[in-house]
C-alpha cells in the first residue's frame, strides 16, 4: 500500500503546518500504522488533510472513509485537538498545528 509523504519531505519547502495524525479503530489495522506526522500548507483544513491521506493511502482508505456522496461515513470520527470536528465546522475546520485523531468505529449493537 502507498505510504504518505513524511514530514521531512515537506519541511524542505519551508512554511508548513506540522500535523500529527493518530489512527484508531479499524484504520489502525488497515493502515498498519498508529500515527503519522504530516506537513501541510498553513491554513489547511481537515478536508485538505483527508485529501492528502486519500492520495497517499489510495482506494482502501478512501472507500472506507467516505460515502459515495463525498461525505465522511457515519462511523468515522475526527477529533481536532480533542474536539469533534462536527462542532468545529466539519471538513472545513482549520487544522492549525493540531493533533488529529481519526477513528473508525464499529457499527455496534443489535440482536
Amino acid at each position: 500500500m502507498a505510504q504518505p509523504n513524511q514530514e521531512e519531505n515537506f519541511m524542505e519547502e519551508g512554511n508548513v503546518a506540522i500535523i500529527n495524525v493518530k489512527f484508531m479503530g479499524d484504520l489502525r489495522a488497515l493502515l498498519q500504522q498508529r500515527a503519522i506526522t504530516l506537513a501541510l500548507p498553513p491554513g489547511s483544513t481537515v478536508g485538505d488533510l483527508f485529501a492528502s491521506l486519500c492520495n497517499s493511502y489510495g482506494e482502501p482508505f478512501t472507500s472506507r472513509v467516505f460515502s459515495g456522496s463525498g461525505a465522511l461515513q457515519h462511523y468515522i470520527l475526527v477529533f481536532l485537538d480533542g474536539q469533534n470536528i462536527k462542532e468545529l465546522g466539519g471538513l472545513g475546520a482549520r487544522l492549525g498545528n493540531g493533533e488529529v485523531e481519526i477513528v473508525m468505529l464499529p457499527m455496534f449493537e443489535g440482536g
Partner: peptide, 14 residues
C-alpha cells in the same frame, strides 16, 4: 478493542 485497533469487534449476540 477500538483503541487497540482491531476491526474484529462482535457487537451483537445472535
Amino acid at each position: 478493542g477500538s483503541a487497540f485497533g482491531t476491526p474484529h469487534l462482535m457487537g451483537n449476540a445472535s
